[in-house]
Design a protein around this nucleic acid. Structure first.
Lengths: 247, 247
DNA sequence: TAGATTGTTAATCGATTAACAATC
DNA sequence: TAGATTGTTAATCGATTAACAATC
């Protein structure tokens, strides 16, 4: 399962009884891939007007049928015999992901990792703006990091209100993560990207996704371990230097 | 599915015909959760000798039956009527994840994000050691970052050989990520944690997992969008301030 | 028209849950 | 023994794939 959301957390788009584009439920797995499709479309923009599911799927590293199925949840935007109009599809995916406004995001915890998040160049082009940095450490408060002043966590309510923040990235030490998370929820933040290695408890209307850096390495370590053992035991051999998926 | 590995990439532990502990195949989804269980066990260590699947599952934020099923893939280490011995279970999971050596990891691309990875405190306690930093920028080469000198990417083969590196974190600009990835593969790196927002192509014996920061925010944005719409349309109401999962 | 490609269906596969017999 | 808790089975659920009719 994808990290973060509780299993079976289906994105229920109930049938809109009247009005435009009756939206169907979009599976979690599909939502997670939309962002990859959007990136691939961005890479194509300018070079061609349309793209086939086959070509786009190759760029995104997925099966073409799966791509078509995913896109079919958004509506019917392809042209049989031709493909998908890149501009139209980009717009539709952006709209579905709610990226049309340019969302304000707060970074909470401005240590080693939080500072990197504050300066990460990849957010702006993909629909987000780092609108505030917050920390509890008075030695950090007032410092300017990547052009933004660090605010004290006690100002959280005011900052969230003024900057219209609904998404926060939580990069505090693990020991205080749940407490800070509670504060975020209390002031109305409803989506949290959690970098602290703890399982957060939140009310059901709040979405949490996690980025567990050491956890990711541990998963890779498992596969390293298995590969090393396979070499020794002559286990399931992988063709040495198989050509692999050229996306 | 969890990001990174191609779908259906089952962790095949074929039946060992003779010798200790006949290992069964461990599902990808299970492997991804083992790291969470290990963390929860770490939090319990010292306070009690044993823990029930119910208590551990609550800490890990999963269903108790699922936890027992996951652990059953490693073997039969629980005691009916009692629970799991924390030390034994910790050892078994660590062994399964291949964490017993302390693995050397390289950071490739020592920019904004790479520097934060180099200094991230959470790796050491969870089985990893940042053993090398590499970059192509001559202005960075030679600088000491979090105690380690930045080496030139041309020294990659030597560094990987000397430090016995098999896992790399890739934090270069997206434009050069595939090229650097190819270099990593060429010198024998077989696991890559990719932070660049591109789909990497690798031979089949190489494992790639991705951390797509903006992508994670886009998934949260989708849910924000849905929640905002639900408020307006009076759609599927979430009980305001439902108590949620206290882990 | 003929070729290309979508949108969708049915089949398959994998993951999760509920339930309970086994057993400490 | 009685109560607690594991390990496993069967049922369910969700996600992916293969295949193809619809149609540009």
């Amino acid at each position: 399962m994808s990290p973060g959301l509780p299993p079976g957390h289906a994105a229920e788009l109930p049938d809109v009884t009247e009005g435009a584009a009756a939206a169907r439920a979009i599976p979690d797995a599909t939502v997670a891939r939309l962002s990859t499709y959007l990136r691939a479309l961005g890479a194509l923009a300018g070079s061609t007007a349309t793209v086939s599911s086959d070509a786009l799927a190759r760029l995104a590293g997925v099966n073409a049928g799966l791509l078509r199925k995913d896109l079919s949840y958004l509506g019917s935007y392809g042209i049989r015999g031709v493909g998908y109009d890149i501009t139209t599809l980009t717009d539709q995916i952006s709209r579905t992901l709610g990226l049309t406004g340019g969302r304000a995001v707060a970074v909470v915890g401005v240590g080693n990792l939080g500072q990197a998040l504050a300066g990460y160049a990849g957010f702006g082009s993909r629909g987000f703006r780092i609108a505030a940095l917050l920390d509890a450490d008075l030695a950090r408060v007032g410092q300017v990091v990547h052009g933004l002043p660090v605010r004290h966590i006690d100002d959280l309510a005011e900052v969230v209100r003024n900057e219209l923040i609904s998404i926060a990235m939580l990069a505090t030490p693990a020991t205080v993560a749940q407490r800070v998370c509670d504060q975020l929820v209390a002031v109305g933040v409803t989506s949290i990207l959690n970098f602290a290695p703890v399982v957060l408890s939140v009310p059901s209307q709040v979405d949490v996704r996690k980025v567990d850096l050491a956890g990711e390495l541990q998963i890779l370590s498992f596969h390293e371990h298995r590969k090393a053992r396979d070499v020794n035991t002559g286990g399931p051999a992988v063709a040495p230097l198989a050509t692999g998926v050229r996306a």
